[in-house]
Design a protein around this nucleic acid. Sequence first.
DNA 1: ATGGCTCCATACTGGAGA
Length: 280
Amino acid sequence: MRIATYNINGITARLENLLEWLGETKPDIACLQELKTTDDRFPADAIGKAGYQAIWHGQKSWNGVAILSRGSAPKERRRVLPGDPKDSHSRYIEAEIGDFIVACLYLPNGNPAPGPKFDYKLMWFARLIMHAEQLLAEQRPVVIAGDYNVMPTDLDVYKPERWIDDALFRPEVREAYRRLLAQGWTDAIRKLHPKERIYTFWKYWRNSFQRDAGLRIDHLLLNAPAAKLLKSAGVDRATRAKPHTSDHAPAWIELGAAKRRMEPVATIKKTKPPRTRAKG
DNA sequence: ATGGCTCCATACTGGAGA
């Protein structure tokens, strides 16, 4: 079971890239961010022809999230992060897919910091931490995947000293991420690659990708039942190298099959047939 | 050093992204 998260940076402009990536890497579940289009313009037909059922929460020009599945259909659980009825940004969607719960998020960027946008980011993070506490209580495997817009540690930034005052790296934001993990979530990529420099974003400017001047800001967090199933994790860097591509690369995990709760099975005693001597 | 690049809207420019 492969679950991926990909900030597509405009699903209209990037539809061909998206379909190519789906065909090449065949994720079972794909969480998308930055659709940058309204619900009625979401390309559900093209995505359906590629073999995926989807739910989405769009918005004109900005934000927008979707969950695609090529196995069980995603059953929507919520499309709003609780805690602020006035929040009009489309940044969250959550579904039940087979035995899994999958949440897809696009956490606010927060620049410039300090300022109202940074305040909004911290508020949004606090709401996420509140809601994640509820998700963590689930017995089923839960994956919270998306663009978190935070580099958790120095290892996740090509030049930490240059990002120290940025909303993606300020101490308050890293602290919020630590608080989230401390609830019991596993950062899948970091768990399997504790020392490796792994990035998921490179600016379009100044040949950032060619220089590997990147950031790790797209994450897949796992509750304990999901973490038990974790087999491998990585980043589709080749997707970032393509023409007309998003400035993010997809990040993914491979999970083993979720174990269904064993139902009590009536013991069938095998009784050997009585030995009968061949007569005659 | 506030540049550089690319999306979207209904546009020939500006906001947002990170």
